[in-house]
Structure formats: C-alpha cells, structure tokens
C-alpha cells in the first residue's frame, strides 16, 4: 500500500492510522472513507459508542478526542491519526465503574440507554473542565446530547451525584 502523504486513504481506498484508544496504542487499517465512529464500531469492535443521527444532530456518538468531546460521526477516521481517543468503554477502571457510570445507574439517568454513552463521555469532559459545575452549567454543557426517555432531570442529578463523589474521593481526571 503506497501512500505518498504518510497517512490517510490512498488510491486503493484503504487507510491506516495509529492512535491511542482507551489508553491502548492502536494501529488500524480500514476503508479510508470511514468516520471515526465507523472505525471504532466496525474495525475495533468498540460498539459502546452509538450510531445515532449520523449528521451531528443528536450527540449519541460523542467520544473524547485529546480530551475534547466531539462527535465521532462527523470526524473522518483518517483525521484521528496520532490522537488520544476515549470511548465509553474507557471510562471504567477495569471492573470498577467510573463514578459517572455508577451515578447514572443509581439515579435512573439511563432508560433505553442509547444516548447514555454520549452523555457519559460529555459529562466526563464537563466535570474535567468544571469539577464543581452548577445545575445550569451541566444543563448548558449537555445541550449537544438529546435524550428521548428521561426528560434530562435525572441525568443532571447523576452528574451532580458523580461530581460530589469524585470531589469526596479525590478522583483524578
């Protein structure tokens, strides 16, 4: 496979990137037209990240790229070369759930669960940026994620619960 430009799709339509996914160095070859979402789900079997509207209108596919919450359905996978990607699978510490995951379960913040991975990673970025986020800040920070089941209130409460627990435990980012 020759590629004069180092990364990305060549004339054969295949592309190869090296990225860090949930802490693991990952070298993956894939159809060069794919989005990061498609590569995560189809080539790396990380199906926790959900395929929602495909057009940036719902937030279900959010992942962290270099710590920023972005929509993996709108990021071409070739663009992730060299990036640090965190998906919902990367939140738990081995068998120990992230405080956000625990709080989402306890507070009823997940019903059908389809939006949950997107909410979890966005909420993580939000608490990383603002560990003592107010209700208003949580509401504004999560305004790019749609939830059809909960009416959001229990999601806000879960983020607040997790924030309090993380503050009490001194959990690092």
């Amino acid at each position: 496979m020759s590629n004069p430009h180092g990364t990305g799709a060549d004339v054969t339509g295949r592309a190869r990137v090296k990225m860090t996914v949930n802490g693991d160095p990952t070298d993956v070859t894939f159809g060069g037209h794919k989005t990061l979402l498609e590569v995560l789900r189809e080539d790396l079997n990380l199906t926790g990240t959900k395929h929602g509207c495909e057009l940036g209108e719902c937030g279900a596919c959010a992942v962290l790229v270099d710590g920023k919450p972005v929509l993996s359905c709108l990021m071409l996978a070739v663009e992730a070369d060299g990036a640090k990607v965190t998906t919902v699978e990367g939140l738990a510490d081995e068998a120990r759930l992230h405080p956000l995951q625990e709080a989402f379960a306890d507070c009823g913040a997940a019903q059908c669960g389809y939006c949950t991975p997107g909410f979890l990673v966005t909420a993580k970025a939000l608490l990383d940026a603002k560990p003592k986020a107010t209700r208003k800040e949580i509401c504004e920070g999560l305004a790019g994620n749609l939830c059809r089941c909960t009416g959001y209130i229990q999601i806000f409460e879960a983020v607040e619960t997790a924030a309090a627990k993380m503050a009490a435990d001194g959990v690092k980012k």
Binding site: C53, L55, C139, L142, N145, R148, G151
Partner: peptide, 17 residues
C-alpha cells in the same frame, strides 16, 4: 425528515418538574 428539523427539546428547553 431529520432530527435537526423534527425538533425535540434539548436540555435547555426542559423546565423544572
């Protein structure tokens, strides 16, 4: 015919209940 045009309330439209 899309989720951008068929408007569902976001977090910002949800009142206190």
């Amino acid at each position: 015919p899309s989720m951008l045009e068929y408007k569902s309330p976001t977090t910002l439209e949800m009142p206190e209940v």
